[in-house]
Design a protein around this nucleic acid. Structure first.
Lengths: 150, 150
DNA sequence: AAAGTTAGTTGTATGCTACAACGAATAGGG
DNA sequence: CCCTATTCGTTGTAGCATACAACTAACTTT
């Protein structure tokens, strides 16, 4: 570990700094993209949609949020008519979450403008670089925490 | 635009999803890393340190924050004795921000544990991958917004 | 059946943020 | 030299997101 090149440290610092900067800006950027949808709720809705049908606990684990936070966010989403809860027939504690038709629609429209923003931002990148960047991010996020096994 | 490979779209989606997930988790992760330092303030302090001496406006631009937000955060940092304000002799509106000795110290200790966390998370990565990941992040952040010119 | 565990909700407090209205300092015309 | 931008920063106010703790309901284990 002594001989490890100093370049690694530098790369780590850059990664750390840039990820932080990104995280910091993300809120503002997201708010600009979909001023209508309550922002965080959008994220949760997207995740609910991505894995068709998931529990509140899954959301909490995936995003490292307290269950109370998720509970309120889901309540908001439900009030907006974007998400439905179906009690699990096998276990009445569990509510399985699904996007409603309106939810899917809202998601699609937001997704579109969001994708456009990304496309503009990453338009110059080669498909190769995009693929590698995506792979790095996946690897980075997968490593970290026990968020969810798969 | 029609012939653009669908792979690009997929990569974009992955990038979007993973960056979002990261941003979402970042708060919780950061809170774990330095429970003492008010979290956001840490970020600002790091930036103040990184560019030796900057104005509140610079911080706001860099992180896409409202000046009022920065004002309060800086006030907090000052109250904690981590940052000093020096009025610019040429322009009395401007306050140049500098970390205090305590600020540098706090930053160093946090930086250390933070770096350790990153090192653990990215320990398996080759130096090459790290460098490329860092470069992608730099490129990504640089492109986006008029945060700051350089 | 009693004790323990898991899913989710609600009460409460706090942090971070934006927007708007303001004060102070400077810069640019007439 | 005043009068009007413009720029930098603060304070008032309000809202969202979040955590922690206490609680209910439902399942599980012994």
């Amino acid at each position: 570990m002594a001989g490890a090149p100093r370049e690694r440290e530098e790369s780590l610092d850059v990664i750390q700094r840039e990820l932080t900067a990104f995280a910091r800006r993300a809120r503002a950027a997201a708010a600009r993209l979909h001023p209508d949808l309550p922002l965080v709720s959008y994220t949760l809705l997207a995740h609910i949609d991505h894995r068709q049908g998931c529990r509140a606990t899954d959301l909490a684990a995936h995003y490292m949020l307290d269950k109370s936070t998720v509970s309120r966010q889901v309540a908001t989403l439900e009030k907006l008519g974007l998400v439905e809860r179906h009690p699990d027939p096998d276990d009445h504690r569990i509510q399985v979450l699904h996007p409603t038709t309106a939810g899917v629609r809202a998601l699609a429209s937001t997704q579109a403008s969001r994708r456009a923003a990304y496309r503009e931002r990453l338009g110059e990148w080669t498909a190769d670089d995009l693929a590698r960047f995506a792979e790095y991010l996946l690897r980075y996020n997968a490593t970290g925490d026990g968020t969810d096994p798969r």
